[in-house]
């Protein structure tokens, strides 16, 4: 059990993995910002951004399928944008009456819906590549470089470390519950196996409460372990190593390219 199912990091001998985490985080955020700044229905720019993304996915050697599969996570939210198809004012493309409701699909609605879905999909894939090609300790370093307060970075680091410990604890609690929740061998009149929904919710809540109490105690023990090694409340770390010149160039080149694409989008 050496790769935890929660850890999205996938080691590969790729250029993207080798990129300095500070450069990688900055470029990934810039890409997502560029996608957001590109106007609705600037299709040529979307195509170029998609090509850029696909190149990065290929370079990362994570596998196009892996990235696509994970990107389905953001799909359910598309529901929220569906009404825009028929409410945005514009030229009618198609009309239908559904249960007495007259629905009018408009060109502007379609363009807006398509753009939102595409933007969302491009952004989430870049975020997936970032998480899958960068270890969390590297991300912490990148956060420091982006001026996230040290205390917050330290809290993130501790959270990451104990996430796995506590998720494993949560799994043990769930397993213990599963081991005790057998269905009755013969149906009992009037009784539902597993209790009511309210009861099940309260059992789950009890487990969450249990987890929190144990975490209070663990927090105290960790504090003791930190204090025993000299921790005094101030967060200290090594100074950050400089970013190599080549990577600096890659960062600037990437930012310029993205700015050009956004500019192009506004010219269309």
């Amino acid at each position: 059990m050496h790769v935890h199912f929660l850890d999205p990091y996938r080691p590969r001998p790729s250029l993207i993995h080798a990129l300095d985490p500070r450069v990688k985080l900055a470029l990934a955020l810039a890409f997502i910002l560029a996608v957001a700044l590109t106007p609705i229905a600037a299709w040529p720019v979307y195509v170029l951004l998609a090509a850029l993304l696909l190149s990065v996915v290929l370079l990362s050697e994570l596998g196009v399928g892996h990235v696509l599969k994970r990107s389905a996570l953001a799909l359910p939210f598309v529901l929220a944008a569906i009404p825009i198809l028929v409410t945005a004012p514009g030229a009618t493309l198609w009309e239908a009456t559904l249960a007495g409701l007259s629905l009018r699909l408009t060109d502007a609605g379609l363009a807006r819906f398509g753009s939102i879905v595409l933007k969302s999909w491009l952004s989430v894939q870049m975020a997936i590549v970032l998480a899958a090609s960068t270890t969390f300790p590297q991300l912490l370093l990148a956060m420091r470089a982006l001026r996230v307060p040290r205390l917050l970075v330290a809290i993130f680091g501790l959270m990451w470390r104990y996430l796995f410990v506590l998720v494993d604890e949560a799994l043990r609690l769930l397993r213990a519950r599963a081991a005790r929740s057998a269905a009755p061998t013969r149906p009992i009149a009037g009784a539902r196996p597993g209790g009511s929904v309210a009861w099940r919710a309260r059992v789950a809540g009890g487990m969450a409460g249990n987890l929190l109490i144990r975490s209070f105690d663990r927090g105290e023990r960790i504090y003791a372990a930190m204090a025993a090694r000299g921790y005094d409340g101030e967060i200290r770390a090594f100074p950050m190593p400089p970013i190599p010149a080549g990577q600096r160039l890659a960062l600037i080149g990437g930012l310029v390219l993205l700015a050009l694409l956004v500019g192009l989008g506004h010219l269309l």
Binding site: L151, A154, I155, F156, G157, L158, M159, W160, R161, Y162, L163, V165, L166, V167, E169, A170, L171, L173, L174, G194, V197, R200, A201, V203, A204, M207, A208, L211, L212, R214, S215, F216, R218, G219, E220, I222, Y223, M226, A227, Y231, D232, G233, I235
Partner: peptide
Amino acid sequence: NQDLGERQAPLMGVLAAAIFAGQMLNFTV
């Protein structure tokens, strides 16, 4: 920081992890 002082980082980190883990304790509706 005023309330917890030096204990802030370890307590906040572990409790954030606990809420995260607590979110995984699902129940069938």
